[in-house]
Design a protein around this nucleic acid. Structure first.
Lengths: 95, 95
DNA sequence: ATTTCATATGAAAAAAGATTCATACGAGTT
DNA sequence: AACTCGTATGAATCTTTTTTCATATGAAAT
């Protein structure tokens, strides 16, 4: 039941917190506490969101000491967001 | 407040019904009752879903007699779904 | 102008998803 | 082995999104 449908995949992009995390990880890989601190969002919220992103392989993680470092799957995410931006720009000029 | 963020945009792809509609309209433009019949889904559900798709300019509509014919904004949608497919294929092999 | 058919819309109910909070787990330290 | 720190997880609650259903609107036909 892995990425069974578009549903799970796109859910990650239709949520403000997940988008914030994605965008933070786009600048550099980070561990959970860094994300939590940088976004000023409580840790378990971050962890729950990351679980969903991980589930669809939109992020990867590696252990480093006590920390778990998350990095973005840019290969998918960057062009995807670019498409959305382009759409907005073409069809949603009015803010 | 039009397409203010990724949120509204991607919400259209993280919903099974909207995806079904998108996929139906990808084969050919259709009016509401055709969609309703083809997908075996009640009319007002279709209309509500279409309203959300329209809001983000993912579909267009034109009046034809009593019917309103909807067509897909393929320019955005097709490459977007293609990206998602490619992702699944690369990272979600196991079903 | 009334009727009919197709679609849209609003509001209440239901379902899905997110947040919270308490706690568990796991890696490293002492 | 006990402790600490960082992260994950589960369950209850809260919020958002969908569905349902009744009704409104709008275009064409009579």
């Amino acid at each position: 039941m892995k990425c069974k449908s578009y549903h799970f995949f796109f859910r990650n992009f239709s949520n403000p917190l997940k988008i914030k995390i994605i965008s933070a990880l786009n600048s550099k890989e980070m561990c959970v506490s860094e994300l939590s601190e940088k976004l000023k969002i409580e840790q378990s919220k971050i962890s729950h969101a990351l679980a969903s992103l991980r589930f669809c392989n939109l992020v990867e993680s590696k252990q480093k000491g006590k920390n778990r470092i998350y990095s973005l799957n840019k290969k998918t995410v960057v062009p995807l967001l670019k498409l959305a931006d382009k759409h907005r720009q073409l069809y949603c000029k009015l803010k």
